[in-house]
């Protein structure tokens, strides 16, 4: 769409829209520095809730479980999701391809309560004790599908003949994948990993179904705390989590913007020569 006139109407929609998106989080952050335990009354600046949070063993344990589950499941999901994407895009026809693609897309639209229930009943049926392992298995299963979608969209846009050239020049298929395909799809693999990691850190419903008594994740902990109402410690915890995500997303997007700028410069240099 051409730029045209940027009317007052558009400016108002943007301002109101972004106020709606960001004000609730901003309020949450401001009130995490509130002296009072009453979260609706401002009683002066204080960082005491952060101090209390850091002394709360239960939260720290839950954070550790969440991190472990997140790292394991996102790494496994990235490997499996990349394999699945490669199989779907490069392998042509094989028996059961339809079922395979259905199983990749279904978890994306499946309500979490159903996925959680199904996995729990499965773990009980095979007699696997619920804990960190079962949560990680559950998270791997749904996030590998997200990774596969992200990697697929990158694989379909890049030129297959590059791989074929490497094979013609005597590369083994594995070498061709490692030295040609992987570097090209790497940005998608990395963003797939980040997506899987965030999904895992975020998940309440599936983790509630598949966790055992000794393995509580941070979202489960937060959920049971906020069910009773708003609490300043949770505000402090939320602020820390929002801070980490903001820094992460902004620096990732700055890095990718700089990389694409450098890429453009290189192309221009090459053209001049």
């Amino acid at each position: 769409m051409n730029q045209g006139r940027f009317s007052w109407f558009n400016a108002t929609s943007l301002t109101l829209g972004f106020a709606f998106l960001y004000l609730p989080m901003l309020i949450l952050i401001i009130y995490s520095f509130n002296e009072s335990r009453l979260v609706t009354v401002w009683a002066g600046f204080s960082t005491k809730w952060y101090g209390e949070l850091l002394q709360n063993e239960a939260f720290l344990d839950a954070a550790w479980v969440t991190l472990k589950v997140g790292l394991w499941s996102s790494t496994l999901a990235t490997i499996l999701g990349t394999m699945a994407a490669y199989a779907m895009v490069r392998m042509g026809r094989f028996t059961g391809r339809g079922l395979f693609s259905g199983m990749i897309y279904a978890p994306l639209v499946m309500p979490e309560v159903i996925t959680g229930l199904a996995l729990l009943l499965f773990f009980i049926a095979i007699g696997l004790d619920r804990g960190v392992v079962t949560i990680a298995l559950a998270h791997t299963t749904f996030s590998m599908c997200y990774v596969s979608v992200v990697v697929t969209s990158r694989l379909v846009t890049f030129d297959k003949s590059l791989e074929e050239a490497a094979l013609d020049l005597g590369c083994t298929p594995f070498d061709a994948f490692r030295s040609v395909t992987l570097p090209i799809i790497m940005p998608a693999v990395v963003s797939g990993w980040l997506l899987a990691f965030t999904l895992s850190l975020d998940d309440l419903v599936i983790a509630s179904f598949t966790s055992g008594p000794s393995s509580t994740t941070l979202p489960i902990k937060i959920f049971s705390a906020v069910r009773l109402g708003v609490s300043p410690e949770i505000n402090a915890l939320s602020t820390i989590m929002i801070g980490i995500v903001t820094v992460g997303v902004i620096s990732a997007s700055l890095l990718s913007r700089r990389r694409s700028l450098r890429h453009k410069e290189d192309e221009q240099k090459a053209l001049r020569q």
């Binding site: 998106l21 949450l28 939320s238 997303v249």
Partner: peptide, 18 residues
Amino acid sequence: ILPFWTSFLIRVYAWMGI
């Protein structure tokens, strides 16, 4: 996109105080 990366649970919770 940024809110999408922020925890869903926290974004819902933020409205409880409001």
